[in-house]
């Protein structure tokens, strides 16, 4: 073995470098041409993740390329939104989004809103429920509201402050026209339900995924925020039945970065529609307490605009200021 002179290194490196650069090769083809990243701005195992993983596997079937779920949790979902916004607008990155995109904007957490993306479709809608501690003394929603009006600031409501679970309860306060709750910060559905089961909070927003806990008597569902009673739980009255006109749900859809070509968006929209019509998807969503609700990009754009105005008003009502 001979020890090479120092110059060896300087020959070796460029050769190595050339070798490498020539390895991967890109070519232009019809969309989609390679695996698609679906950015889920929350951790694996959550509601959004569970819904979107089902959607991804069905999108894959329609598009013919792998659709890989990429979880980018952090900073109340804004880390994922930021990455999605930065991604090249070629349809190979899609962003799964829900109402948090409006709330984080108006509470000043993020400076990204729905208008930074091109809407593709709305896929699902998960109706909200007013839930109380399983051994609470309120049997009906009316009893709860009357008690809350009598002693505002005493009944403890768990919520992710400045997000959907908070705004839902604020919306009720606004419709009832009175302060009702004392808010306690519990971020995420799982910690909130745990605290509700332990009686550390009295009220919280819940959804039909937690039906099992209600059936077991550990939490109690008082009212559902839908227009009509829900087929999976016909025994739960709606808020409207109590004269509180609140219809509220967490709505999940898909978007792509701004600048994505129209033909690509149209292809994705078509795939999205076939997912929404797939009985496998409907069945999976039913078991997740979620309604399939398809809106095409035109309808979804209008929906987003209206939803945005509502969230803006709610954020101002609560007292958030955009920075």
């Amino acid at each position: 073995m001979v020890s090479p002179p120092g110059a060896w290194r300087w020959i070796l490196l460029p050769v190595l470098f050339l070798l490498l650069v020539s390895v991967p090769g890109g070519h232009v083809g019809a969309y989609p041409e390679r695996p698609i990243r679906m950015i889920v701005p929350w951790a694996a195992g959550g509601d959004t993740d569970a819904i979107m993983r089902v959607a991804a596997s069905l999108l894959e079937k329609d598009l013919g390329v792998p659709v890989v779920v990429v979880n980018i949790p952090g900073a109340s979902g804004t880390a994922g939104a930021r990455e999605a916004k930065k991604a090249p607008p070629d349809g190979h990155t899609i962003f799964s989004v829900h109402d948090y995109i409006h709330t984080t904007f108006y509470t000043g957490v993020a400076d990204i809103n729905y208008w930074d993306f091109v809407p593709v479709c709305l896929l699902t809608s998960t109706p909200s429920i007013v839930a109380v501690y399983g051994r609470a003394r309120w049997r009906t929603f009316r009893e709860l509201i009357e008690d809350a009006k009598r002693r505002p600031d005493e009944i403890k409501a768990g919520a992710t402050l400045g997000s959907t679970s908070h705004f839902f309860l604020v919306l009720i306060e606004r419709k009832v026209g009175s302060r009702l709750w004392r808010y306690v910060s519990y971020e995420g559905t799982a910690p909130r339900m745990t605290a509700l089961m332990g009686g550390h909070i009295d009220v919280a927003e819940s959804n039909l995924t937690q039906l099992d806990k209600a059936r077991a008597g550990q939490i109690r569902f008082l009212a559902l925020a839908t227009e009509k009673r829900h087929p999976s739980a016909p025994d739960i009255p709606t808020l409207r039945e109590f004269g509180v006109d609140v219809v509220y749900a967490v709505n999940r859809g898909l978007m792509v970065p701004k600048g994505t070509p129209g033909s690509v968006v149209a292809r994705l929209e078509k795939a999205c529609e076939s997912v929404a019509r797939d009985p496998v998807f409907a069945d999976a969503m039913l078991k997740q307490g979620t309604d399939v609700r398809f809106l095409n990009r035109g309808q979804y754009t209008i929906f987003l605009r209206e939803n945005d105005a509502l969230n803006k008003a709610l954020a101002e009502y609560v007292g958030f200021k955009r920075r």
């Binding site: 039906l211 059936r215 077991a216 069945d283």
Partner: peptide
């Protein structure tokens, strides 16, 4: 959940 089973009480 993806298999349609929601573990609960």
């Amino acid at each position: 959940i993806i298999h349609g089973i929601q573990p609960g009480p």
